Simulated assay, not measured.
Amino acid sequence: MERVQIKKGQENKYFKGQVNIEYGDLSDDVFLNNGQLISLESHYGEYIGTAILTMEAKAQGWVITRDANVVIDDYYVADLIQTAIDKRTALFNETGTNVFRLFNEIGDGLGGLMIDYYDHHLFVVYNTNGVYQYRDAIMRALIVALKPSSITEQTRVMSDGKLQTENNHVYGNVTFPIVVKETGIDYYAHLNDGPMTRLFIDQRETRKALSRMNKPGASMLNLFAYSGTFSIAAARAGMTTTSVDLAKRSIELIDDNFKLNDMDTERHSTHIMDTFEFLKYAARNNMKYDVILIDPPSFARNKSKVFKVERDYPKLIAESVKVLKKNGQLILSQNLETFTLNQFKSQITSTLEKLGYESKIEDVKGLPKDFPVSKGYKNGKYLKVVTVSLNG
């Protein structure tokens, strides 16, 4: 195993527990390869840990163990997977929910690997070729431990500055989409149809809270709605919903989810529009909502327009409050790793203050328990969902 030193002056954060290797911190990486195991050392040759190089956007690699005697091989990876499965015993036995995260990257010990469980169907995501080298060990461990109905893989590789994704069904018999259940509500999921599966399982707690809101007859506006899962949860609580998304396919996906749950679609509408354009349209037509949920992507491009969540979220809030009923609620979601919860809360409150609104943060949610994060990776808690009530 090659010994690689951290640049002088940068080693202290790794001694304190940081597990993500930042680009520029290695003293010499010219001849290092994706997937290579290295012995990470200080400028003075002190052992820091054994790391795997993954060359992904958010890290050049990950410290896997601080024990120099540990051998990183197929057996080690299989043990990590079995440990992750054991930790989720309660979720396997939970009534009303059969979809959750089974293995969450460095939070479960191996950066670049994600495994999701969809009612006996597995979705394995390799965020880097470096982790893909352990594919056979991962497949064997999953098949032996879980005897899944099917396994679908997704590889995500950066090429020429762009993320390239490819899905492949590799094991078992399945016809997609499948139906999964979350807190008693049915949703469609498709594991072999592009980068997304129709259900963002990290938002489980948000949907649960929506489905339990005591607002019968209230109206909810769901912006960046995608497959409409937030709208389905709100409808379960008795709310009427309006879903907005730019993708034409959203009409079909949202309608399918409503029909799957035997919900009357006449009480719910879908608009295929740019979000900002819809908000202007709603304001012109005096459309008002009791609850507005905003869950934008971190980055999006629509023709000549570019949306960056850290820059443009205040604009979303400013336009949304124009169509929010008095004493209404905003449910604001953001998933940019480099933007902290405190920064997000500050952005929300300062924006509303500038607009002349008194606000109160009613609730804050993050990742569910099946998305463990490493204390050594400060950006791991990427999901932030803040519910704000407004006066004035």
Results as ranks from 00 to 15, higher is better:
368 P>W: 00
143 I>G: 06
298 S>P: 04
25 D>F: 12
82 Q>K: 14
99 V>F: 14
320 S>V: 01
310 E>T: 12
195 P>M: 15
180 V>D: 09
130 G>T: 09
370 D>K: 03
26 L>K: 02
310 E>V: 12
147 K>F: 09
171 Y>R: 02
389 S>T: 01
301 R>N: 05
290 D>P: 00
46 E>Y: 15
120 H>T: 11
192 N>I: 12
225 A>R: 08
200 F>H: 10
60 Q>K: 14
231 S>K: 07
124 V>E: 04
7 K>N: 02
105 E>I: 08
250 S>W: 03
273 M>P: 03
106 I>A: 15
104 N>S: 12
210 L>A: 08
222 N>D: 13
342 N>W: 04
345 K>E: 12
112 G>I: 11
191 L>T: 02
118 Y>K: 04
118 Y>S: 12
111 G>A: 13
336 L>N: 11
323 V>L: 03
338 T>M: 12
28 D>N: 15
357 Y>N: 00
385 V>L: 00
160 D>A: 15
277 E>V: 14
359 S>C: 02
349 T>I: 13
323 V>W: 01
24 G>T: 08
207 R>F: 02
307 F>I: 07
354 K>M: 03
207 R>E: 06
357 Y>A: 00
286 N>W: 08
161 G>F: 01
147 K>S: 14
200 F>I: 02
8 K>Y: 11
220 M>Q: 03
72 I>D: 08
329 Q>H: 15
89 T>G: 12
265 T>S: 13
19 V>R: 15
40 L>T: 04
1 M>C: 13
247 A>Q: 11
55 M>T: 00
133 Q>L: 07
281 Y>T: 09
155 T>C: 05
269 S>W: 06
39 S>C: 12
72 I>K: 11
102 L>Q: 07
292 I>P: 12
293 L>M: 03
135 R>I: 01
85 I>R: 08
123 F>S: 14
369 K>V: 05
197 T>W: 03
58 K>M: 08
11 E>S: 13
167 N>Y: 00
391 N>T: 12
126 Y>V: 10
91 L>Y: 11
217 G>C: 08
190 H>E: 00
117 Y>L: 01
49 G>E: 12
138 I>C: 11
299 F>H: 14
180 V>P: 10
276 F>T: 04
221 L>T: 11
126 Y>I: 10
186 D>V: 01
97 T>A: 10
214 N>M: 07
25 D>G: 11
197 T>V: 04
357 Y>F: 12
123 F>P: 13
243 S>W: 02
318 A>E: 04
193 D>S: 13
205 E>R: 10
336 L>A: 10
220 M>I: 05
10 Q>I: 06
185 I>A: 11
42 S>C: 02
357 Y>M: 05
66 R>M: 04
336 L>K: 13
90 A>I: 08
177 P>V: 03
126 Y>C: 10
353 E>V: 00
112 G>R: 10
54 T>S: 14
293 L>Q: 01
294 I>C: 02
191 L>A: 04
310 E>D: 11
71 V>I: 08
279 L>I: 05
294 I>M: 09
226 Y>W: 05
73 D>V: 07
376 G>R: 05
239 M>V: 00
282 A>D: 03
315 K>P: 05
286 N>R: 09
72 I>F: 07
160 D>L: 14
294 I>L: 11
173 N>D: 15
146 L>A: 13
389 S>N: 06
117 Y>R: 07
